[in-house]
Design a protein around this nucleic acid. Structure first.
Lengths: 172, 172
DNA sequence: TGCAGAATCACCCAAAAGGGTGACGACATC
DNA sequence: GATGTCGTCACCCTTTTGGGTGATTCTGCA
């Protein structure tokens, strides 16, 4: 229960319709059974069979209802089109995009936490001076950090470093 | 039916267990009902009530079974942990990522095709000189283009322009 | 205890980037 | 034919960025 229900517009109406349909089906069945009841009562001990039949029928109906009710929930909206279908596909985590840095790559390149932090701020569009102000260090410090960072990434410019950092999953 | 079922390891076993549980419950209920049956039979026309009761019970049971069975199917795998839960979340179309420029935004900001082209090359990490070489124009031309682009975006630096361009869906 | 890695800072210099202004040709629109 | 937009280029000047070197402090590890 990570999030509240935020289903498609007509979902509740459809659920109601299904419940109604279920009720009608039940009613019809009861009527039918009642009509046939008398015939069954002639044969004495068929009550058990009758009950079992009713039980099985309603169980099946219940299962169907349960399925149809839950099937409405996951609606994948692509562009404008609404596809109502159960999602079976495994979502490869990265699709819901809670970004995590590729620690392996970070260690592999020998990038320190400070350097990574500065890479993030560069990607955010800050100048060296702004970064210095944000981290309470001198501009020279930021410059040395970024210099070493570019070395490790093999980048010549900060824009290139950002691009490389993104493809290497060091920054979102 | 986008893909075949590739559910979690213990899914089938659990489904079987549920069905068995369902059967046992049904059996127990039938036994109980049979025992109470005689008492009900004393009162003559309570058969209908009895049937209705059975029907309702089995319907409920069926719904429960339907729910528990379907709940197992969608399994989101994050890292190593398996979360068995119905997927409710709307997946934004952008997740499947066939990038298209936001033409509306482009016109809204008054960005020309050439400027957009240069923004893309800046984002790719090229220097003004490299861009000039790529587009067969002078470096000064690239500079004027980028200058006007930054004006329109309200950016002070090329890194900032890239960041803004990305959030505005002008570049992937 | 001493060493390695990190974070920090300074200084110098060159290259790149950015701001401002002006100008020219092509093309479309009115 | 006038106007406007777009793409092109030049020049000048300031700011930012990047490279190189050296030094200091702190911390964890051998």
């Amino acid at each position: 229960m990570t999030s509240t229900q935020e289903s498609a517009p007509g979902s509740r109406r459809r659920a109601l319709r299904d419940i109604l349909l279920f009720g009608v089906c039940g009613g019809v069945l009861i009527v039918v059974l009642k009509l046939t009841e008398y015939r069954f009562l002639v044969v004495e001990y068929s009550v058990e069979i009758y009950v079992a039949l009713v039980a099985a029928l309603f169980a099946g109906l219940g299962i169907w209802l349960g399925l149809t009710l839950t099937r409405k929930k996951p609606a994948v909206i692509i562009q404008e089109k609404i596809i109502t279908e159960t999602i079976i596909k495994e979502i490869p985590a990265q699709a819901l995009d809670p970004f995590v840095v590729d620690e392996t790559r970070v260690n592999q390149l020998g990038i320190t936490t400070r350097e990574l932090e500065i890479l993030g701020l560069i990607a955010a569009g800050l100048s060296n001076r702004e970064i210095a102000g944000k981290l309470f260090v001198s501009e020279n410090t930021v410059k040395t950090h970024s210099s070493r960072l570019f070395d490790k990434l093999g980048a010549k410019r900060r824009t290139q470093a950002v691009q490389m950092g993104k493809t290497a999953r060091l920054i979102p």
